[in-house]
Design a protein around this nucleic acid. Structure first.
Lengths: 235, 235
DNA sequence: TGTACATCAGTGAACGCGCGTTCACTGATGTAC
DNA sequence: TGTACATCAGTGAACGCGCGTTCACTGATGTAC
């Protein structure tokens, strides 16, 4: 079988370069840039499936798109640039949603609750992609000037701002550093999401291991209640 | 140079198999098991340095120990077993410390605080190793029966128990599911630790990016305050 | 309307590398007689 | 005390593989005349 010559003029041969089945049709002349988006999309999906970038190869991305591996290099300098771009797009979206939530009407405490919900909604919707955004990224391999205008930092600044407003309005405790408090709030929400996602990922196995873990909404409610007023019994 | 025959009888040749310098002396006859511990130690250290197991090769572990790669297989069936063992040891220690903290005298609320401190202390002490324990592990690649007696689960059960006691004693809020509340508490502490560690890891770069992040103790205090009584201004 | 040509959007084959793992072996250490 | 031997604690070389990346190329598409 493998010794049979590879007849490239045979019109029935439409297999992709890998062993895969799909071969993407060549773009029209001005539309080369479309491949860039398709690559980003495929890379993001694979990143979510595999959990970290070491487990996703350039070859796998190319095969999913239906293109040969070198075609990736038409749009990205190297593997790091490709995966950095994936993460940046994800953070941009999260940041946008948080800014929207922060801009709603209501007291600082209410807006804080909105932001918490928005964050959790985004993370649970995107599921594994959020996971990768936060931990499967390429910490350290990205140059500082790229991080400079990080959308995640913008979102964090909004959180700190909301907390400061709450303190001034007398709604939020003033016995802690506002930034430290913002960190604590972010940490609580982020941690909860990670836990919910890891259960979601584990599926069957998890329900055996942690049989009595409550449903998602119950955990989300508990986290938001904790952030608002802690474990202590009030009154 | 490379065409010169490799004279194995030359007593001056004491280089390790890789390009490394150190070659571990052969163990005495009954002491073969000692290599196992040395391998675990080296693998754990490398795991902490590199951040996840994909970035640590069997060959790198062998070189650090001062032994040839096949020697690893004298003590571990394969790469997965080696790194699973690394994580298990780490969790065991964390679990032990938490159980100690839970067994101290005081109200449930006070013991909860002790556990929080113990958890944070352990995580910040171990630094990158904690990080790996939680995220760089081999989720999914470990068979369920190995997870069954997971020390992490034992520790979580202790946390839930403490919270239940607090609810019964009227110290802890009873408007949330106790397990969900435990998840929220764990999430808050875990999330804060992860954030502090990523700043610690980033070093220089981070202080440029987040110039006004407060010192560790301030953040830790804020997290414990948040867990205790939330963001809301009391009274 | 026809044709030569430049450009665009890719392809196929190959490179050198490091990896996990296996296999046949070696040489020091302890033991039996 | 001496020596043959079994065992232990490894070693050296090799395997096949998939990886990121480069390079020379190709063939369809649009453009100029």
């Amino acid at each position: 079988m493998s010794s049979v010559a590879h007849d490239r003029s045979d019109p029935r041969r439409t297999e992709a370069p890998g062993s895969g089945a799909y071969r993407r049709p060549r773009a029209r002349k001005g539309e080369g840039e479309r491949l860039r988006d398709e690559i980003l999309e495929a890379a993001t999906a694979l990143l979510a499936e595999r959990g970290n970038k070491d487990a996703v190869s350039i070859r796998a991305v190319a095969e999913r798109v239906g293109v040969s591996p070198p075609a990736i290099y038409l749009h990205f300098a190297d593997k790091d640039e490709l995966f950095y771009e994936c993460c940046r797009v994800g953070f941009e979206e999260l940041s946008r949603r948080l800014e929207e939530a922060a801009a709603t009407a209501g007291t600082a405490l209410e807006r804080l609750g909105q932001m918490g919900r928005a964050y959790i909604d985004y993370a649970l919707e995107r599921g594994p992609q959020y996971r990768v955004l936060m931990i499967g990224g390429q910490t350290g391999s990205v140059s500082p000037e790229l991080i400079e205008d990080d959308p995640g930092l913008r979102a964090f600044a909004v959180l700190v701002g909301t907390i400061r407003e709450g303190i001034e309005a007398g709604e939020i405790r003033d016995d802690q550093d506002p930034v430290a408090l913002a960190v604590a709030v972010w940490a609580a929400v982020h941690g909860a999401v990670m836990l919910l996602l890891s259960r979601q990922a584990a599926g069957e196995a998890a329900s055996e291991v942690m049989p009595d873990l409550p449903p998602v909404e119950t955990v989300v409610d508990a986290v938001l209640a904790l952030v608002r007023s802690g474990v202590v019994k009030s009154g």
